[in-house]
């Protein structure tokens, strides 16, 4: 059974069609990566799946239930199914880092603060944030550190499926490897199904199983990671090489 299925999902903002009939199947334990030029609707796609943005047509299924369509949104009935790393980190700026990470445990699941704090500290340690930051506020740490704190906040909830929106932008090369490894481990060891939006080739090779290319609201290429790195498809070669000349209009 598929973990997640999208059937002909479309979404427009005004007259601008951002998602145009997306069909997608994600199997249990799979790691799917989404690539595509800036502004093609990758973040919008993730938010539609989470039920945060209403869709115009089509259906989104979790396992064997249709959860979201134009007329209904049952995503609240699946608390804890998804974890999300937002592109902009989206940390709560009125709370210190440890409480950001422990937030879902304390306020969502009703765990007592002490236990939640211990779990939060363990997870912060995993993403390479030292004890120094636990009492700092989000605006007091760097963008890369915010990203890692946000990752910790999602992982500590142990979701069945993780959505990562550009998990590695803003990281230095060493931290990049650490986070790539962490995401890969999470997927493999904890058998989390994952969808990762990324522009980063090292992230792709470390994390991805299957890769789809999104362009102008449509999936225009789909294949395995090996195929992605070997194909002669002009879109993919342009994307891989970062060439200015090619089928993508910039």
């Amino acid at each position: 059974m598929n973990k997640l299925t999208l059937k002909n999902v479309s979404k427009s903002f005004g007259s601008f069609k951002v998602l145009d009939g997306i069909n997608l199947e994600v199997t249990d334990g799979e790691s799917l990566a989404i690539v595509g030029p800036s502004g093609t609707g990758k973040s919008v796609l993730l938010k539609c799946i989470l039920g945060l943005i209403p869709i115009d047509s089509g259906e989104i299924w979790i396992e064997d239930k249709c959860v979201i369509s134009k007329d209904h949104n049952d995503s609240e009935k699946y608390p804890g199914f998804f974890g999300m790393l937002f592109q902009g980190s989206a940390l709560f700026d009125s709370l210190p880092i440890w409480k950001n990470v422990a937030f879902g445990l304390i306020y969502g699941q009703g765990m007592d603060e002490k236990t939640a704090r211990v779990l939060a500290m363990e997870t912060l340690d995993k993403v390479g944030l030292s004890k120094k930051v636990e009492n700092l506020y989000p605006f007091e740490i760097s963008g890369g550190m915010q990203k890692r704190a946000s990752l910790a906040r999602a992982l500590v909830m142990k979701p069945q499926m993780m959505l990562f929106d550009e998990p590695t932008t803003g990281l230095d090369p060493m931290m990049l490897s650490v986070i790539n490894q962490l995401i890969a481990d999470t997927i493999r060891k904890e058998q989390v199904t994952a969808m990762t939006v990324t522009h980063d080739m090292s992230c792709l090779s470390a994390v991805a199983g299957r890769i789809i290319l999104l362009y102008k609201g449509k999936i225009i290429w789909e294949g395995s990671k090996d195929a992605f790195f070997t194909t002669q498809d002009p879109h993919i070669t342009q994307f891989r090489q970062g060439a200015i000349e090619g089928p993508f209009s910039l």
Partner: peptide, 13 residues
């Protein structure tokens, strides 16, 4: 506008 409200929903709150 910084997705904090969406993030809160994802944390079951």
């Amino acid at each position: 506008v910084t997705d904090q409200i969406d993030a809160m929903m994802m944390l079951q709150t």
